[in-house]
Simulated assay, not measured.
Amino acid sequence: MLMDVFLKEVRERGEYDTDDEADRAARVVFALLGAHLVGGERTELAARLPETYALILLNPLQAAEPLAPERFVRATAAWIDGATNETARWDIGAVLSVAADAAGADLTHRILTQLPPGYDELFGRPTHHDR
């Protein structure tokens, strides 16, 4: 996906005023996400992203363990100046929903199986479980 197309989608979904705001959110989210993905799925996702974000995803921040979704939100908020957990969740949703569209259903499903339960909502793909 081309950078301008990706940023346009993130900007629209995140309701950002500028490309810089959308870019800042994408850089943080991919740096954190990359620490939680391994193997072919991380490489496949990177191949479907603009090069800038692919490189960030492939050279992530280090994580000792996968973060639960709420901890991922808090970590994102900590990396974005002035962010709250609520605005970070919004940023994550804008970025990851565009990434999921670029990845397609199969790859997104394989990515979600690597992550702790609850990331499906962050990707804009809530899973409905029968109770």
Rank of each mutant, 00 (worst) to 15 (best):
R125G: 02
N85F: 01
Q114I: 00
A54N: 05
P126K: 03
H109V: 07
A78K: 10
T113C: 09
D120R: 02
I80Q: 09
F30I: 02
A99N: 04
D81H: 10
R27S: 13
I80N: 03
A88E: 05
M1A: 11
D120T: 05
A31R: 14
L57G: 01
I56R: 00
V29W: 01
G118T: 08
L55T: 01
L45T: 05
L107P: 04
R89G: 04
H129T: 14
D81L: 09
D91G: 09
L115M: 04
R74P: 00
T84E: 02
T84Y: 00
Q114R: 08
A31N: 13
T108H: 01
T113G: 03
R74T: 12
D130M: 12
N85M: 02
R89I: 00
R11E: 13
K8L: 12
L122D: 03
H128A: 12
D20R: 10
Y53A: 03
A105M: 03
P126H: 07
L57K: 01
E41M: 02
G124H: 05
P50G: 04
L33N: 06
V95I: 05
P116M: 11
V38Y: 14
A46Y: 03
K8Q: 14
G118R: 01
I56S: 01
V38W: 11
A68K: 14
F6V: 09
D106F: 02
G93C: 05
A68H: 11
P126C: 09
E9L: 13
M3H: 10
G93Q: 13
Q62T: 12
A75V: 13
G34V: 00
L7R: 02
D91Y: 10
L115E: 03
D130T: 15
H128Q: 12
R125C: 03
L2M: 08
F72C: 07
R48F: 05
A31L: 11
D120H: 04
I92N: 02
A102M: 09
I92C: 03
P66M: 10
E70A: 11
P69N: 06
F123W: 04
E51Y: 08
E65Y: 13
G40Q: 11
E86Y: 10
N85T: 10
E9G: 05
L112R: 04
D4R: 15
F123I: 01
A54D: 03
D23M: 07
H129Y: 15
V95A: 03
L67I: 09
V5H: 11
V28P: 01
E70M: 09
W90G: 01
V5Q: 14
F72T: 10
L55E: 14
P50I: 08
Y16C: 08
Y53R: 05
W90K: 15
E44W: 04
